[in-house]
Amino acid sequence: MEEGELIRSAKSGDKSAFAMLFHQNYSFLVKYLMKVTMNPDTAEELAQETMARCIEKIHLYQGKSKFSSWLISIATNLYIDQQRKKKREKNWQQQEEIYRKLKWQLESRNEEWTDALSALGKLADDVRIPIILKHYYGYSYDEIGEMMKLSSGTIKSRVHNGILAVRKELRLNG
């Protein structure tokens, strides 16, 4: 069944259509959240919350963007809200603790944890997310602005400043 058809069925309450949509997009969603949160456990928890929110809000999905983009948008806002509630201090030690598991997972597969990932991990969430969406997923500034409910100008400057910060960090380490 095609995605459009699945969405129509899901909107009419078909649980199998929902299940197929989630099954198809789960890995994509979790991997996106891993890059954003840098924490596999948080990524999985957020993916489940995202799916729950999707069931609740499916009637609002207009089909203007791809379903996976809509999921990313929900997940991003859930994560930002969660972080805002926590209001925790962005402490480097803490952040290192957070991405230790992901680092270990990559290293156990003989994959190097790069300095760029460490530098990315040090950035604030609202800077890291637009960089990932722009330079890994290829979304435009307008699309990211729509997802994060910010102007495209703000997104552009956050991406630019974020990359400058990463560059500085890499130079310090290099």
Partner: peptide
Amino acid sequence: TIKEIEVGLESVEQYA
């Protein structure tokens, strides 16, 4: 820098 970020993120995509 962008290239390095992409490489790092790709390793998460491929190996996590």
